[in-house]
Nucleic acid binder design. Structure first.
Lengths: 128, 128
DNA sequence: CAGGAGTATCTTGCACCGCAAGGTAATGAG
DNA sequence: CTCATTACCTTGCGGTGCAAGATACTCCTG
C-alpha cells in the first residue's frame, strides 16, 4: 500500500469545497448557534464527510475576524473543554444571502457546461 | 482610481471554479476538438464569463502533461497564429465521467447544507 | 493524588490552482 | 514597414483546505 498523501479522488473534493465551505458554515450557524465540533458532524450528515477540524477552525476564526460571526462560551454538558458557540452577525447573514445566490448561478453554469459532450442526451429546448 | 485587484465578489467565483474547471474543459473538448481561445468563449456562453486565458492555458497544458488530453495543430482560417486543438484521451474521458459523478454528489451535499437556516422555506419533506 | 480517556479548540506549514499582467508569434491590410 | 487581429504561453501573487500536532478541560478509575 503506497502511502498516498491525499489521493487524487479526495483531492478534487478539497478543491470543490473552496468558495462554498464558508457559506455552509454560515448556513449552519444561522439555523442555530453551533460549536466547531458539532459543525463537523452536521456537515457529515449533509454528505460532506471529508471536512475535518483543521479546515473549519481556521475558517470560523477568519469569519469572526471579518465580522461575519460572533461567539460566546458555554461549558460542555457532556464533560470536556468549554464550547465556543458561533452565530452569524448581520453582515454574516447578508453574506450568506449573497452567497446562496452566487451558488445557484454557479451551479447552473457548471451544469450547463458539463452537459456538453454527453454521449446520449436529448438537448431539450433552451428558448423556453 | 481605486485599483482593486479582484474584489470580494469575483474572488468567490475564482474559488468556486476550483475542482470543476478542468471538468468543464474536458466536457467541451469531448464534444468536439477545440482550441484555447474558443474555449474561453464557450465557457462564457455557459455563464462562466469570468474565466480568462490565464486560467485555461496552464490548465490545458497540465491536462496534456497528465495524459488526459492530446493535441494537434492546425492553421487558423481567420488569419492569425496556428490553433492548437485539444481532445480528451481515454483517461480523460474516464476522468470526466468520474468527475461528473463527483460533481452531482457534491452539488447535492451543498444544496442540503445551504438549505439549513433558510428564513422562510416550506422544507418540503424531511421525514414528517 | 495520578493517570487515562473523551471532548473540544487552536496553530503551523504545505500544496494547490485561478488569475491579472505581460509577452510571443503568425497572418493580412494599409 | 507598421498596425490590428487572432491565438498561445509564462510568471508571480494570493486565498484557502487540510494533515498533523499541541493544548486544555472534565470525568472516571484506582
Amino acid at each position: 500500500m503506497g502511502k498516498e498523501p491525499t489521493g487524487p479522488r479526495e483531492q478534487r473534493h478539497s478543491q470543490l469545497l473552496r468558495g462554498v465551505l464558508d457559506l455552509c458554515l454560515l448556513a449552519l450557524i444561522a439555523e442555530r448557534p453551533r460549536f466547531g465540533y458539532e459543525i463537523v458532524e452536521a456537515l457529515g450528515e449533509s454528505g460532506l464527510e471529508l471536512v475535518s477540524e483543521g479546515s473549519i477552525y481556521p475558517l470560523l476564526a477568519r469569519m469572526e475576524r471579518n465580522g461575519l460571526a460572533d461567539t460566546y462560551r458555554a461549558p460542555s454538558p457532556s464533560g470536556g473543554a468549554p464550547r465556543k458557540y458561533y452565530r452569524p452577525t448581520e453582515a454574516g447573514l447578508a453574506e450568506l444571502e449573497a452567497g446562496r445566490t452566487a451558488w445557484l448561478v454557479f451551479r447552473g453554469a457548471v451544469d450547463q457546461a458539463l452537459s456538453a459532450g454527453t454521449p446520449k442526451e436529448d438537448t431539450p429546448e433552451e428558448g423556453r
